[in-house]
């Protein structure tokens, strides 16, 4: 299996790695401090030249969760077609990760979306600002403590009547 050799090589280099497996998804769990090194090693030594997915999840209400945010990087080796997921855990108040933009340009908008939705900062990102929500929006909507129907922002506009327009 291609995954086994990659994971064995990674474990030899980064001793503290934890690996899990579910269906055909292979995951490597790493601390935020070593995240960039692991990503760089995967890119340079194992040929993972595409970052096909970068997302996060808020584990506030997850059963038996110990950490608040999980950030997931999905990497793909275009030559062999092997996929691998790198996961890292984050807790408040230090919600900062190194940006993956120097490794893959595709990380640009994906990181901006994670920032927009969860408020996770990416250190070294060239242009980290809100992408989907308006600039004036103050909350991070996909966090679990933000209600589905919002806090009334959607009603907060001026009304134009017939006579005025």
């Amino acid at each position: 299996m291609a995954h086994d050799t990659i994971i064995a090589a990674l474990k030899a280099k980064f001793a503290e790695l934890v690996t899990t497996e579910f269906r055909d998804n292979f995951r490597v769990v790493v601390a935020p401090a070593r995240l960039f090194d692991v990503l760089q090693s995967l890119k340079d030594e194992h040929g993972f030249n595409m970052l096909f997915e970068l997302t996060a999840a808020d584990y506030l209400k997850y059963p038996k969760a110990t950490d608040r945010f999980g950030v997931v990087y999905g990497l793909l080796n275009m030559a062999t077609g092997v996929r691998i997921f790198v996961k890292t855990w984050l807790n408040e108040p230090d919600l900062t990760l190194p940006s993956a933009f120097p490794l893959w340009k595709g990380a640009d908008w994906l990181e901006r979306e994670v920032y927009d939705m969860y408020g996770i900062l990416f250190d070294g990102h060239p242009d980290l600002r809100r992408i989907l929500m308006p600039e004036a929006f103050t909350s991070f909507p996909l966090r679990k403590d933000y209600p589905l129907r919002g806090r009334g922002e959607r009603h907060n506009f001026a009304v134009i009547t017939r006579a005025e327009s």
Partner: peptide, 15 residues
């Protein structure tokens, strides 16, 4: 789409 971002009917804001 009864969510935080969607205006619940444009008739609230324009005729």
């Amino acid at each position: 789409f009864d969510t935080y971002a969607v205006v619940q009917g444009v008739d609230r804001f324009i005729p």
